[in-house]
Design a binder for these strands. Structure first.
Length: 488
RNA sequence: GGCGACGUAGCCAAGCGGUAAGGCGGAGGUCUGCAAAACCUUUACUCAGCGGUUCAAAUCCGCUCGUCGCCUCCA
């Protein structure tokens, strides 16, 4: 497998420190608000990474933290007049609700910052002892100038940053680029006691402390969004390498942003959509298909159209699988194979092609391409096979196996995980729930129309059809009668 | 100002040195009383522009233009 390493600035062959075991740390949310689509991308990307690594035979130890104490949490709690702990807990609960709705696997370890205060204090002490940090008026700062590799992750030099950076007016700092490890508490703020007085940890120190506690000083992969590269991950790296005097994460994975009209979706711009907003309109698998249709490092532009495209594509995949189900059940076995050699090869190589794409830095977009290619070939095969009186056992088995493979592979992206029949039914149910029309009424109308058709009363027949279509119900006239579906 | 990413058909998106995957949309077709749905076929002599390296470039190098991001909290 090859994975892009931000630290190296290129794709590298991946091999974990301990054979067969991957240790992964991902920066989780700061819990002060509902998660938006950007958070969904983050969770979904690493969900895919974990699923695929496990599929590839690795044991994965996955740690994802919660930042449950932070300036923004304190500010929001004050705004709402609630306790900051309570606020953090509330949005952690909301996070789980959203993640469950998206089908995101739980991390193996989900540590909270507030439960690791002592680990952070210990780490800060070590940094002070090594001369890399200094207390100042109740705060503690990291002495950036003492860490010669500062900037190695984000690819910038200290001098360059100072040129354009907003100068921090904080006069407690020796250098404007120094960052805070421990913040002295102001009156009324949440606080913990420490050797430097009462206060709370700075943002970056929690990840250094918790990753060390659960994964050790040196581990395999550290991940997060591109916006975390600087300063968060740069600072983490400075803390960990500074304290441990050994390499930190060997590989850094950073995913791209979700944009709206090509602008970054963010709280400060106010152009964000929450996960729960989107899930009101679209099934989770549709959102997943949309997110995985772009390689994780590239920007992903969110739009109604894009989501609808994903919905159409997902429907097509399910239709294909449903068709295989029907065919397999109805087929009389016997006869010669009718599926062409070329198509057989395409079907049989699906897994291999999918893996090759995913092995190349989790190229889910390409992997999905292969899946859609599979849909096309399988549809073609179904048509051929369906036109036969008797179907070769070989062909039936090939189709059945292909269906299992499709769902197995798509499962690594968390899509196509429902029984096709159920998926199609669920879609009908959703529509029915939003209509005043009952299923009984629809069937009555269909009967009425069919009666008119028998009389060749096309005007009445078409009027009924148009009436139903006005409710987004489309009729399918087939050899076995008329069925109905949802016009998405 | 510093650093970085990106620019591929109407839209989205792979490809990263060997002659353009896939999706949506469009156009034809099968089916149908006509439709719709579904399915099939088709849809970039060309990869922002201009130079260069090479037997060979969308892919490597340089410049220009454009878009976005980071440098401050952010997934």
């Amino acid at each position: 497998m090859k994975i892009y390493n931000t630290l190296a600035g290129k794709k590298e062959a991946f091999s974990p420190l301990e054979e067969g075991h991957v240790q992964l740390y991902v920066c989780g949310i700061t819990s002060y608000d509902y998660c938006h689509i950007g958070h969904a991308r983050s969770s979904l990307v690493f969900d895919m990474v974990v699923r695929y690594l496990r599929y590839r035979g690795y044991k994965v130890t996955f740690v994802r933290n919660f930042t449950d104490i932070d300036d923004k949490i304190i500010a929001r709690a004050a705004e709402q007049g609630v306790d900051s702990t309570q606020l953090a807990e509330q949005f952690i609960a909301a996070f789980y609700t959203d993640m469950d709705a998206l089908g995101v696997l739980r991390a193996d370890i989900e540590p909270k910052a507030t439960e690791h205060i002592q680990d952070m204090i210990d780490l800060i002490q070590e940094l002070i002892e090594k001369g890399l940090a200094y207390p100042s008026a109740g705060d503690v700062y990291y002495r950036v100038g003492k860490f010669s590799d500062y900037g190695m992750l984000s690819g910038r030099k200290l001098e360059d940053m100072q040129a354009g950076a907003r100068i921090d007016v904080n006069e407690q700092k020796e250098d404007p680029m120094d960052f805070v490890l421990w913040k002295g508490a102001k009156p009324g703020e949440p606080k913990w006691s420490s050797p430097w007085g009462e206060g709370r940890p700075g943002w970056h120190i929690e990840c250094s402390a918790m990753s060390r506690k659960y994964l050790g000083k040196n581990f395999d992969i550290h991940g997060g969004g591109k916006d975390l590269i600087f300063p968060h991950h740069e600072n983490e790296l400075a803390q960990s390498v500074g304290a441990n005097q050994c390499p930190f994460a060997n590989l850094w994975m950073h995913h791209g942003f979700v944009t709206i009209k090509d602008e970054k979706m963010s709280k400060s711009l106010g152009n964000f959509l929450t996960i729960r907003d989107v899930l009101k309109e679209y099934p989770a698998e549709t959102l997943r298909l949309f997110i995985f249709s772009t390689q994780y490092r590239n920007p992903l532009d969110f739009s109604e159209t894009a989501l609808q495209d994903a919905q159409t594509g997902l429907d097509r995949m399910y239709d294909c699988l449903a068709q295989i189900n029907e065919l397999v059940q109805a087929a009389e076995q016997g006869g010669d194979s009718t599926i062409g050699q070329k198509d057989k090869k395409k079907i049989q190589s699906l897994r291999q092609r999918f893996e090759k794409a995913m092995d190349n830095d989790f190229n889910s977009a390409q992997a999905l391409g292969h899946l859609f290619d599979g849909v096309k070939v399988l549809n073609k095969a179904c048509r051929l096979v369906g036109s036969q009186q008797e179907v070769a056992t070989e062909d039936i088995q090939l189709l059945e196996q292909a269906k299992v493979t499709m769902q197995d592979l798509a499962g690594l992206l968390g899509v196509l995980q429902q029984e096709p029949g159920q998926y199609i039914q669920a879609k009908k149910d959703r529509l029915l729930a939003s209509l005043t029309l009952s299923e009984q009424k629809i069937n009555d109308l269909i009967a009425e129309r069919n009666a008119a058709r028998e009389q060749k009363d096309w005007a009445t027949s078409d009027a009924v059809r148009d009436k139903l279509l006005a409710h987004n119900i489309e009729l399918h006239d087939g050899p076995d009668g008329t069925s109905w579906g949802v016009n998405a």
